[in-house]
């Protein structure tokens, strides 16, 4: 009896689990909606209003480092001629506005909405011609096998064959490529952010870029056939795993076996 009344007085545990799930789905869904940056043709980058909006955002958020006319200051390079692609990449991956100086500006949670990013890109693109944001057709439908070969030759020395990232000198690093939107991959190749070389269209043709993106997408959608990937870091993580879990587990078993007899 007592139990019954108590139960009705409180929320059932199932209810809180359900609530939690609803909450997670809602935030997760919203997050996915916000971060799903595809090459949006919906914003017209040449419209004066958009450029105007971009200029205002730029003055408020970027001018301290890049200058009122994006001409550059001691704290940041000139953005004249870097093009919409560069801005879309830098702001769309959260690298800009930069927060702290260091060997490399890391990607962080994105601070602007998609339309604002496009406005900033439109403003910078209006200053001088530069690489444009790639369209949907430029980043989908590539050849996975050709992309894999190109990736191993052009990117793996910095980003690792599985895109697991790698170290460069003086604290710089090539980041992990898992979870990077295709459009940002394209823009990274096109503009060569920070310590990454730019791959212009003579280096890697638009077709090649598309293939590389297809390869990265394939890897992301097809987890390893062999099971857990251990960060795809190769023999180091395999060795650590073996010593800690393999040999560790077996030593625990030896202790167990010999303890039984005593």
């Amino acid at each position: 009896m007592n139990r019954q009344t108590r139960k009705s007085g409180r929320r059932s545990p199932v209810a809180s689990v359900a609530l939690l799930l609803v909450g997670l789905f809602a935030t997760g869904g919203a997050y996915a909606a916000f971060t799903a940056t595809t090459a949006s043709a919906s914003v017209d980058l040449s419209s004066p209003e958009v450029i105007n909006q971009g200029q205002k955002l730029f003055a408020a958020n970027c001018a301290t480092c890049h200058g009122q006319q994006a001409q550059g200051t001691q704290n940041g390079p000139s953005l004249i001629g870097v093009g919409a692609a560069s801005v879309d990449f830098q702001v769309g991956t959260g690298r800009m506005p930069m927060q702290a100086s260091g060997p490399q500006a890391p990607s962080k949670p994105v601070q602007f909405e998609d339309s604002q990013i496009k406005a900033l890109a439109a403003y910078v693109a209006s200053l001088a011609p530069g690489p444009a944001i790639p369209s949907e057709s430029q980043i989908s439908g590539g050849d996975v096998a050709a992309g894999g070969e190109l990736f191993r030759i052009n990117c793996a020395m910095c980003h690792n064959v599985a895109g697991a990232g790698g170290a460069l000198t003086e604290g710089k690093y090539a980041p992990v490529l898992k979870g990077v939107a295709p459009v940002h991959v394209y823009e990274a190749m096109l503009t060569g952010p920070q310590n990454m070389p730019a791959f212009n269209d003579l280096n890697l043709s638009p077709e090649d870029k598309k293939n590389i993106i297809a390869y990265l997408q394939y890897n992301e959608q097809n987890p390893s056939a062999g099971g857990l990937e251990l960060g795809s870091l190769g023999p180091v993580s395999e060795g650590l795993f073996l010593w800690i879990f393999g040999l560790g587990g077996i030593v625990a078993l030896t202790v167990w076996i010999t303890a039984k007899s005593n």
Binding site: A156, A174, V236
Partner: peptide, 16 residues
């Protein structure tokens, strides 16, 4: 991928 003398991956290590 197959061996090719030109590329080297970041994080190339031998077994432990």
């Amino acid at each position: 991928g197959p061996y090719d003398p030109s590329p080297v991956s970041a994080g190339t290590q031998p077994d432990w």
